[in-house]
Amino acid sequence: MQLRKTLLVGWVSVALLSGCSLFNSEEDVVKMSPLPKVENQFTPTKVWSTSVGDGVGDYYSHLHPAWQDGTIFAADRFGVVKALDASNGKTKWEVNLSTNPGFFSSRISAALSGGIAVSGTHAYIGSEKAIVYALNTEDGKIAWQTNVGGEAISRPVISDGLVLIHTGNGLLQALSETDGSIQWSANLDMPNLSLRGESAPATAFGAAIVGGDNGRVSAVMMKEGQVIWQQRISQPSGATEIDRLSDVDTTPVIVNGVVYAIAYNGNLVAMDLRSGQIMWKRDIGSVSNIIVDADHIYVVDQDDRVIALNTDGGVSLWRQSELLHRNLTAPVLYNGYLVVGDAEGYLHWINTDDGRFVAQQKVDSSGFLSAPVVASDKLVVQAKGGEVYSFTR
């Protein structure tokens, strides 16, 4: 099958991108778990909400806000980018990156994707049209824009004077933070069929650690783009090509010289940062970013179980299985609680000690795709319809 990531459409993409499994019969449909009944121990307070364009609609674009120095930066897929005052949600500036082909023509979508990253005086965002933009944080004006080697659907990562972009065709490219010029490109091998999504790299000690669609995690020297080591954490297996998907679409986490990474249809692994050698692995798969906090790891697996493990051997501490197939976002830690959103627009607050629900709230009927973001003392989340919400606890 010669489907590429950009061609996953129809029932294939719906099933894969929701984290559900495929069955042989059309009548065998994975059903979303009913909403669990929760007796709220507290009610999170909505501080403000504001619209940022039309959101992502039915597209699988993991657009999410970013925060820096009292300002929230958010965008919609069409091309609207806003800087918002984190205290009240009021717009500081707004730009539109969509293009205008002529006076009598409608504007053409910029197809923004992957989320905003902010560092210093620039906010960075990529597009499905293989363009990376750097915007001035003060006024939103374009500082530079660069055409990269493929769809820029992962979040840009800024480190060591470089903007790292993992493109949809398997390239890891380094752009100059100053002017956007391409410094190097590393080709990470691509299978014929893969999920729509790319791992944003993690960086440490001059190396970028990034997952690939081939089931491998790679370490790349940021000075020259040379691959130091590669480690396979998922081995394709199963009767169908869908079963054999082994993408590592999540961002690795680096703590105390250990790399934690997870693959779809694969494993959660701990690896030595210097050599890539696997220290331990557990049979858990996911397409959502994981959290490593102190000696705990928090995972939303591909069936939407929320799981806590310890970092010493990956021993399971608890599992919360009442949100199966509700298409959960990646988790975030906020004020000592684990928070996830779901496709129906609920936020679920979970006790990190035992996995029990402590609060639940309906926020937005368009649902959530991207994880909430912690902005100082606030929790900020963007709904698929484009509304951005700020909460406090």
Rank of each mutant, 00 (worst) to 15 (best):
105 S>T: 14
324 L>K: 15
137 T>S: 12
156 P>D: 05
136 N>I: 02
36 P>H: 04
62 H>D: 02
310 N>H: 07
341 G>V: 06
138 E>L: 11
373 V>W: 00
334 Y>F: 15
174 A>E: 08
198 E>P: 02
164 L>E: 06
259 V>W: 06
355 G>Q: 03
41 Q>T: 04
222 M>G: 01
256 N>H: 11
273 L>R: 09
95 V>I: 13
187 N>Y: 06
52 V>R: 04
383 A>H: 02
337 Y>G: 02
380 V>M: 00
78 F>G: 09
334 Y>D: 00
293 D>Q: 12
167 T>M: 10
3 L>R: 09
315 V>N: 12
203 T>L: 10
266 G>Q: 11
152 A>R: 11
135 L>Q: 06
114 G>Y: 04
122 H>P: 01
207 A>P: 02
227 V>T: 11
368 F>K: 01
225 G>T: 02
125 I>A: 03
297 I>K: 13
236 P>K: 10
315 V>S: 14
200 A>M: 12
138 E>R: 14
45 T>H: 07
269 V>G: 08
377 D>A: 05
73 F>V: 03
268 L>A: 06
316 S>T: 15
40 N>S: 10
140 G>N: 05
217 V>F: 13
109 S>D: 06
83 A>K: 09
189 D>R: 15
59 Y>K: 02
311 T>P: 11
67 W>M: 04
53 G>A: 04
136 N>D: 13
29 V>E: 15
347 L>Y: 00
59 Y>V: 01
288 S>D: 04
263 A>W: 05
147 N>S: 13
375 A>F: 00
233 I>K: 07
20 C>M: 11
322 E>F: 05
103 F>M: 10
304 D>M: 10
81 V>Q: 01
34 P>Y: 01
143 A>S: 15
361 Q>D: 01
208 A>R: 06
257 G>W: 06
300 V>A: 07
327 N>S: 14
279 M>A: 11
86 A>N: 05
258 V>D: 09
255 V>R: 13
341 G>D: 03
77 R>G: 08
301 D>S: 09
247 D>I: 00
320 Q>K: 13
226 Q>T: 10
346 Y>S: 05
212 G>E: 01
70 G>V: 03
390 S>L: 06
289 N>R: 03
230 Q>A: 13
342 D>V: 01
